[in-house]
């Protein structure tokens, strides 16, 4: 996985460099986001649809959600070591353009039907914890709240465990509260339900 990821990174870099060479300075300044996009896609997958476990899909995420996360990571308020260097010094204009780009990409649902033994209790948990209130009933997200429908399943488990187990400064207290008291099995089932959710 690591090799594949670096290979993708290099491919992305090569593409980005080529774009820079082809486009020249003026147009690159006007449209920085498309030039940077291959770098994002190197890890986040084609058009932002993740192919790598534990890496989130960013295709079709709400624009404001992407903006906020890039700013939080840039400012060091959210610690994501893999992202830190990439967003260091990134301008707000680039962040907005990247967010616009990924918000307009189509999220691709992964193949594979839901395992109902996991999806059913997962759906019950989603209903009991009112996930759809903020993430919307189709879990497509809104404004600062992310899309979780079709998100990478391993990432959902990982992220929800972080919210549940590590509340504290810089963590979303609302998510921590929403997940309070859920077992690992609850989270695994919930992640499966959301990852395989079809509107």
């Amino acid at each position: 996985m690591r090799v594949e990821c670096i290979a993708r990174s290099l491919a992305g870099w090569a593409t980005a460099s080529a774009l820079l060479l082809l486009s020249g300075a003026p147009s690159a300044q006007q449209q920085p986001a498309p030039a940077a996009v291959p770098i994002c896609n190197a890890c986040h997958g084609p058009a932002g649809n993740s192919q790598i476990p534990l890496t989130p899909s960013i295709a079709g995420q709400p624009k404001l959600f992407v903006e906020n996360q890039l700013v939080l990571i840039r400012e060091g308020l959210r610690d994501v070591p893999q992202m830190k260097e990439i967003v260091a010094g990134m301008s707000d204009e680039t962040i907005i353009a990247l967010a616009q780009h990924f918000a307009s990409q189509t999220p691709v649902l992964k193949a594979g039907a839901a395992n109902l033994e996991k999806a059913r209790p997962g759906a019950a948990t989603a209903s009991a914890r009112l996930c759809g209130t903020c993430h919307l009933s189709d879990y497509s997200g809104q404004k600062q709240v992310p899309r979780i429908a079709g998100q990478d399943e391993t990432y959902l488990v990982h992220s929800m465990k972080q919210f549940r187990d590590n509340p504290g400064p810089g963590r979303d207290t609302i998510m921590s509260a929403a997940l309070y008291g859920l077992s690992d099995v609850d989270l695994i089932n919930l992640a499966h339900y959301l990852a395989t959710f079809k509107p």
Partner: peptide, 19 residues
């Protein structure tokens, strides 16, 4: 930003979601 990818050791994990 592109150059920094050379120093990336892995791309497997990111963390939280909403601020």
């Amino acid at each position: 930003a592109a150059a920094t990818l050379f120093s990336l050791v892995a791309c497997q994990t990111t963390s939280t979601s909403t601020p």
